[in-house]
């Protein structure tokens, strides 16, 4: 902390006997409890880092031989014929389906989740906050197969006319052009995913919004801010890193969600024409792997699926890194 006057309320006080105050590692006393706790924490940290590293190594080691034998372009081909003497496989279709469905889910779930969190922390009457928050949290505890069943039995028939209407009105936009597929389209999967990740966004955003210091809120109100202006001036900026983290966790879940998607998705027949439409079907990484787990008969075939899993892993990693960078860049302003 730099000061111009040279007087700061936060200057460190001198330690006892005029020694420099204990800080960081030197604050350890070397007593048994200290050593036990420090050791346990260190071991836990190392194990987590080692696990992530080993998963990456596993994926790479298993995927490389299959990728070497691959006769098609891994990133741009739409073929999927792994195994055999001349395996040909590419992931572009899974990549598009996964990213498009997850993006749809984020576009819906993040604003909606933040709004719900703001309602629960800033607008709802006090007696309502606890029970309503518990209900939203309960949504997060619903197993994904239940979302799959609900999507198939209840939501799909309900969505069908909506899709028809969208195709009629917005069909001239490539994203909404009709494909003849109904049911497990990308848009439909995205909607189900958005409901699945909504409680994650809501619960985490609610935590950070509720922790907005009263001093900041009062500072805004005393300037003559209305409730919404107070939220914009004090609550949202304070909660921003938390909301980004929440969105990333939710995106991670949406990208990797398997059971509900496998259950709902309309896979495309071989050789189906390419389209950008959100009303197209298509497998995601996770559903493709899950649907074909029975076929892991030879290492090269398995390797192709693992390569697909590796892409999903890297995708999640990139998304998280971007979130970190966004949060770090504004760090000086959030302390």
């Amino acid at each position: 902390m730099s000061t111009v006057t040279g007087v700061s309320a936060t200057d460190d006080p001198p330690g006892p006997d005029g020694r420099t105050p204990l800080r960081g590692v030197s604050a350890s006393t070397g007593r048994l409890g200290d050593r036990l706790f420090g050791g346990a924490a260190t071991v836990s940290g190392v194990i987590v880092i080692a696990t992530v590293t080993l998963i990456a190594v596993f994926l790479i080691v298993q995927a490389v031989p299959a990728l070497r034998d691959n006769q098609a372009s891994f990133f741009t081909s739409r073929e999927w014929a792994p195994g055999g003497d001349t395996p040909r496989f590419g992931i572009v279709e899974f990549l598009w389906t996964t990213v498009a469905a997850s993006t749809m889910a984020m576009i819906i779930a993040v604003p909606f989740g933040v709004a719900v969190a703001l309602f629960l922390t800033q607008y709802a009457p006090l007696w309502m906050r606890g029970p309503a928050a518990a209900l939203v949290d309960l949504l997060a505890a619903v197993p994904s197969i239940v979302y799959g069943l609900w999507g198939l039995i209840t939501f799909a028939p309900f969505f069908k006319p909506i899709q028809g209407w969208l195709e009629n009105t917005l069909g001239w936009i490539p994203l909404f052009s009709p494909t003849g597929i109904s049911g497990g389209t990308i848009l439909f999967i995205g909607l189900v995913l958005s409901i699945m990740v909504l409680p994650i966004v809501t619960a985490l955003s609610r935590e950070v919004f509720a922790q907005t210091p009263l001093a900041h809120k009062e500072g805004a109100l005393a300037l003559g801010a209305t409730r919404w202006e107070m939220i914009r001036t004090a609550v949202l900026p304070f909660g921003r890193p938390g909301v980004i983290s929440a969105a990333m966790l939710a995106l991670g879940r949406a990208l990797g969600e398997t059971i509900a998607v496998t259950f709902l998705v309309s896979s495309l027949p071989d050789g189906a024409a390419w389209t950008w439409s959100l009303f197209n079907g298509g497998e995601t990484f996770a559903s493709k792997i899950a649907n074909n787990a029975a076929e892991f008969s030879n290492p090269n075939k398995t390797g192709a699926y693992i390569a697909a899993g590796l892409v999903l892993f890297v995708l999640t990693f990139i998304v998280n890194s971007i979130a970190r960078i966004v949060i770090e860049r504004r760090k000086a302003f959030t302390e």
Partner: peptide
């Protein structure tokens, strides 16, 4: 509150705002 301003016990500048934006906050609300 726009007519009668208030200063609190603990200094509470908005942490996400620059010095300039802190001073301008009330004006922007207006």
């Amino acid at each position: 509150r726009r007519t009668i301003g208030m200063v609190f016990q603990r200094p509470n500048p908005f942490p996400t705002m620059s010095i300039y934006d802190n001073v301008a906050a009330g004006l922007r609300l207006n």
